[in-house]
Design a protein around this nucleic acid. Structure first.
Lengths: 248, 248
DNA sequence: CGTCGGCTTGATTGTGCTCAACCCGGGTGG
DNA sequence: CCACCCGGGTTGAGCACAATCAAGCCGACG
């Protein structure tokens, strides 16, 4: 177990960084005490596979810190990422004990875990948790469906622009700003990860990135940090309608 | 209101054809009485759009009979189906009052509906419903993610074979059989609907169907009824691993 | 009989994949 | 210190698969 996880293990739920967003966000103080008893933390180094397709899932987990990816692989190696797990996102299925996907730590990842059996009992007793879990599942479902449009119908160019726009908006939201005018953000993904996410090859990703650079839509500061001089111009490339396709 | 819906309106929940699968499947008799009071039926003819993207959603609904599709459309007309709604499937989001997708009746469709406001109160009081809804949402999420692999990574041939295999398995399950050896089923979808579902053009769908026919993988009985002489041969074309990629 | 929707088939084009070479920066070890 | 390697990234040439454009078929229905 690493040092980071140890620090977290000392602190209670009330100091948890994702307290207001995770499945426990609606819990009353007395319910939190219950959770406090059951939970355990575990940290995985970047690059580790947390769960393979077909693995037994002894635990239900919430991402506390770090980023993990959910992906599927075909026999011949073709791979598709089907979800990005950010802090507060949930891993597990109360009624299925076998993982349907590979879960890979993209950065160092710390999970807050509950044993399946205990968790199921918890669900029966705690409507606040079930309700929040339902809400989160429905949000994930909508996100997955949005992504299906991208995978099925967008061109390579539009896919790249969409990904960049989404990451930019997410980072802006963290700073409580809106992505508009000049924006700057960090892209943690390798070209290969982008390709897996978008259903492209890494060469196509590289080519389209170069094209966007050449045309001045984006400027690369240092391979990871991207500057968007004019966010509207990037949005034009996504293929979405003017309001960004998002219901705000 | 059509004749079919009138018949349904007369019968109570206990005679409902989807009683054992829908969101009410775990309800006790006393809870059913509650639902009985709140519900109303509505039938839409084939081809009708039940809900447009951006529409206010006054009702939360369950499909009782028929098939509807969930889809997204881009400005320029490109369209992607993101879900198929079969009997017992649920439409609506307790915490969102605006539809994110177009909902179109593929066949005549009858919905069992609850008013949003009432439904939300119901959720607070009835853990059996929330629990069932969570289960259904997680199943949908897994299905959506499976579909993302198909959209992002499979070839046209594999997409068609996968669709046929899935429909065949579903129909077999209805007859409490397993798809194996010689199988036969009905495909309600037009070529265009298949294309929208698979992220292809209808010409490509037609060509691949012809190819599968030519090679003897499938036999068309009468444009809608498809015979699969050897189910394993069809599975070979899907690109999935031998066990069908399904966790049984 | 003509029309119309759903479907098939053909010819051509083009986007994105494949294969391949090469660049760049950061370790590592002789 | 330099040589080497290795992972991530870029770029090019050629190809293949699916999209596009276009014509025609078939069965239903007015």
């Amino acid at each position: 177990m690493t040092v980071t996880s140890f620090k977290i293990e000392k602190s209670g739920c009330s100091e948890c960084p994702i307290r207001h967003k995770a499945l426990c966000s609606r819990c009353e103080p007395d319910e939190l005490v219950l959770l406090e008893d059951m939970k355990s933390y575990k940290t995985y180094p970047a690059g580790t596979t947390i769960l393979w397709t077909g693995d037994q899932m002894e635990f239900m987990s919430t991402v506390v810190t770090g980023v993990a990816s959910l992906s599927q692989t075909m026999e011949d190696g073709r791979r598709q990422m089907v979800g990005l797990l950010l802090p507060s996102d949930f891993i597990g299925h109360p009624n299925r004990d076998i993982s349907q996907f590979d879960v890979v730590a993209a950065t160092d990842v710390t999970l807050c875990r509950f044993r399946r059996k205990q968790f199921r009992e918890l669900l029966i007793e705690s409507p606040n948790i079930v309700g929040r879990l339902l809400e989160m599942a429905l949000d994930e479902l909508d996100a997955a469906r949005e992504w299906m449009l991208l995978l099925g119908r967008k061109t390579a160019r539009e896919k790249i622009a969409s990904l960049l726009a989404i990451v930019a908006q997410r980072e802006a939201a963290l700073r409580l700003q809106e992505a508009a005018g000049q924006t700057q953000f960090e892209l943690h993904l390798t070209r290969e990860a982008m390709a897996d996410y978008l259903g492209l090859t890494l060469e196509t990703v590289s080519r389209q990135m170069s094209a966007l650079k050449r045309e001045g839509t984006i400027v690369l500061k240092n391979k990871r940090v991207i500057v968007v001089p004019n966010f509207a111009k990037l949005m034009d490339e996504t293929g979405d309608d003017s309001d960004g396709g998002l219901i705000v």
